[in-house]
């Protein structure tokens, strides 16, 4: 009986020490990991949208909660005025899961600056063609005020042939952002202009 007690004691001690160490290290590195994720996952998309090096853009970040989802929002506030946003959304219904898109928005002209793909699991050579410049160029200059749709659903966007699911997921992500802006544009701008350190977004991509 003493033996079993010892087994349990030793194992639990090792477990507790290990969990403690990991929790401590994770807490210490959390901010750094999130920054690295932003820099390497979102950074390239952001810097293409705003034509600026990513490290300058990442500090202006906030996480906006709406409809049970959390949207990472990056903003540009040149001259004190928040005039451009980049909002990330997970477009549902892709062939291999969510297609995470980053939509650039010009608030003054009320148009879309463009769309960038942050991450996707679409099939290489088929669905992955959503990454192509020629396909994504269709987003540039679209009006910010009305939902977009594929031509097959009565809209103006041409889907990639053979990759309807992937194209549809991009449209879904875009419309999430457009709806978010329709309902909460003022709040977001206020949060961004307030300059207070916004609540940090949860990790993960």
């Amino acid at each position: 009986m003493r033996d079993i007690g010892r087994l349990v004691l030793v194992l639990s001690l090792i477990g507790v020490i290990s969990a403690g160490t990991l929790a401590y290290v994770r807490a210490a590195l959390d901010a750094r990991i999130e920054h690295q994720e932003d820099l390497h996952v979102r950074g390239p998309a952001l810097s293409r949208l705003f034509a600026r090096p990513a490290p300058d853009l990442l500090a202006n970040k906030l996480a906006f909660r709406a409809g049970g989802r959390e949207y990472p929002v990056f903003y540009l506030d040149d001259g004190g005025q928040v005039d451009r946003l980049a909002v990330e959304a997970a477009g549902r219904g892709g062939y291999g899961g969510d297609v995470v898109v980053m939509i650039g928005l010009d608030l003054a002209r009320r148009t879309l600056i463009g769309v960038e793909i942050v991450s996707h699991h679409e099939t290489p050579g088929v669905g992955a063609r959503i990454e192509r410049e020629s396909f994504r160029a269709q987003w540039t200059g679209l009006a910010l005020d009305e939902p977009v749709a594929l031509r097959s659903a009565g809209g103006d966007l041409d889907a990639i042939s053979g990759a309807t699911f992937s194209s549809r997921a991009m449209v879904d992500g875009t419309n999430q952002v457009i709806e978010l802006l329709r309902d909460h544009a003022d709040e977001i701008v206020e949060l961004a202009a307030g300059g207070e350190r916004p609540a940090r977004a949860k990790g993960g991509s």
Partner: peptide, 23 residues
């Protein structure tokens, strides 16, 4: 079992450090 816990802890440490410094 104890060895596995020790090793797994170290591996998670490496995972975290690698994410933080060599993303």
């Amino acid at each position: 079992a104890s060895f596995i816990v020790v090793i797994a802890t170290l591996v998670v440490l490496v995972e975290l450090a690698m994410k933080a410094y060599f993303y």
